[in-house]
Design a protein around this nucleic acid. Structure first.
Lengths: 121, 121
DNA sequence: TGAATACATGAGCGCATATTCATATAAAGC
DNA sequence: GCTTTATATGAATATGCGCTCATGTATTCA
């Protein structure tokens, strides 16, 4: 938000009343939240990760289980699990040399369902 | 899903029972839905588009209004509005030479709220 | 101790994408 | 008709990202 305004600035249309402008500007002021939201949805924006989450919604499983079920390499899955971990969407538990992954909270399902509702409208 | 399986294939862990495996495999069979879901979330995965949707949640407005409020070029906004249009997240209405945009349905808000719930947990 | 297995990770490649710039279209006013 | 304003869009560039390949770490077992 550090660009200088061009001639566009004088183009606030008449339907936009001043209170609306101020309200939106106030919302825009809190930039952090936009980046966090976008960052979260970016994680959902990949079919491999969607598949992983969808599988984990069915049962806790280890890395090689997921790789096998998705017919993808262990490395690819491991990389994606790291992304999901950093977004706090999955948690893991180590048992010997095997690492079991599972969903970390309920939000995943809820976000999915809203997404599905839109896709299937 | 067209890769040949390596030695990973023999690594289905013991916690995964056969019925779970079949259930997940059956879910994975319907590949289309994963791509559609990922495609939808990809649209939400950009802070500029998030800001646009957030602004439109407050009021219907034209392209230059949005550009002004977000301090971005008209071109950049126009490109992003096309993405949002193609995802059926916004609709538009032409009045003279001005094009007014607004949210196309309720899902946007709902998806946002679920995202926020996760971010603020 | 050495081999095998499960997982993580850094480098690199190829591809998608967000923005800018230049330009096109279209409506309004002179 | 000409100019200005609002919007759309194609090309180009720069950045980000997903996968592979190679390798590292940790655990188990012989």
């Amino acid at each position: 938000m550090k660009m200088e305004l061009g001639p566009i600035e004088k183009c606030i249309s008449d339907v936009i009343h001043e209170d609306v402008v101020n309200k939106v500007k106030e919302k825009m002021h809190d930039e952090q939240i936009f980046y966090e939201l976008a960052e979260l949805f970016k994680v959902f924006g990949d079919s491999t990760r969607i598949k992983i989450l969808w599988a984990l919604d069915e049962a806790e499983m280890c890395v090689c289980d997921i790789a096998s079920l998705l017919s993808m390499s262990q490395s690819a899955i491991s990389h994606q699990l790291r992304v999901l971990r950093q977004a706090n969407l999955v948690k893991n538990r180590k048992e010997g040399k095997v690492v079991y992954y599972s969903l970390s909270d309920e939000h995943v399902k809820l976000i999915f369902n809203q997404g599905l509702a839109h896709v299937n409208e």
